[in-house]
């Protein structure tokens, strides 16, 4: 029903709407900042200025690199691991039936409580953050991949065989195109959750990274820095999600 949403707004109108939302957010932010005072919140302009200033300082970059490295590795592990597990579980029916509920259960438990365990296992360094980020991200990728592979229509495969496709050709020309849209949806969620996991790791018992900067800013009640870093992280998360969503939508449109 949604696909034939009749009145496709023009590109211009959609950009206009996006701008409207952005303006509304900035306006309410400004209002909150003025109402609460600079002890509580900095205004949008101040925050941006401070963010720019922060990124100009040399002490910022080691922390940024730490977070970026931790997140990149966590994301790669989550995506590759999730794909492998999802394909393995999706291809073999019984294995999938055995493990899927376990993954779904893992998805819904508050993994934050498990962070101390991760720390005990991986130590206080970057490895713990990576592990925690990957733990968050790998589950949605696995679940989505598993379902995508399992739902490949058997009739298509039979049709492929009837047309004389080799198993390799069947995978390349039937399984991959059929599963990619769902898998990309899973990766999008996985990347977001991996970021959340990495951030969680940095906020708790970490000595480096943007999360650590956030926590140390609380200790000295440095509202400007808290706001600036939160803004930078949000912009990054939003941009990544927007890019993934664009790919996601494009892939889903064909169906």
């Amino acid at each position: 029903m949604r696909s034939n949403e009749a009145i496709q707004p023009s590109v211009l109108l959609r950009w206009g709407d996006g701008l409207l939302v952005l303006l509304a957010i900035i306006a309410s932010w400004q209002a909150l900042a003025l109402w609460g005072g600079s002890d509580v919140m900095t205004t949008p302009i101040e925050t941006v200025r401070h963010a720019v200033q922060l990124t100009g300082q040399s002490r910022f970059w080691p922390h940024f690199r730490e977070t970026a490295t931790a997140y990149s590795v966590a994301a790669i592990v989550a995506v590759l691991g999730g794909l492998l597990m999802g394909i393995a579980l999706g291809a073999h029916r019984l294995t999938g039936e055995v493990f899927e509920p376990i993954f779904v259960a893992l998805y819904s438990i508050p993994k934050v409580t498990l962070y101390p365990v991760v720390l005990l296992l991986f130590g206080l360094g970057i490895e713990a953050k990576i592990a925690f980020g990957a733990m968050h991200g790998i589950i949605p990728v696995t679940i989505f991949t598993l379902n995508a592979v399992r739902q490949v229509n058997r009739t298509w495969l039979r049709a492929g065989r009837a047309m004389g496709l080799s198993p390799a050709q069947s995978i390349l020309h039937i399984v991959v195109p059929a599963t990619i849209p769902e898998i990309v949806s899973g990766i999008r969620i996985g990347l977001s959750l991996a970021l959340l996991g990495t951030m969680l790791g940095e906020l708790f018992a970490s000595k480096r990274g943007l999360g650590f900067l956030l926590m140390s800013a609380i200790d000295v009640h440095d509202v400007r820095t808290i706001m600036a870093i939160a803004l930078l992280i949000s912009i990054f998360a939003w941009a990544m999600n927007a890019a993934m969503l664009a790919i996601d939508r494009r892939l889903h449109q064909r169906i």
């Binding site: 919140m41 977001s192 970021l195 959340l196 951030m199 969680l200 906020l203 999360g211 956030l214 926590m215 800013a217 609380i218 509202v223 808290i226 706001m227 870093i229 939160a230 992280i233 949000s234 998360a237 939003w238 990544m240 999600n241």
Partner: peptide
């Protein structure tokens, strides 16, 4: 997609 926990300090 936005890690809300980043706003917890705030």
């Amino acid at each position: 997609a936005i890690p809300h926990l980043a706003f917890y300090p705030l």
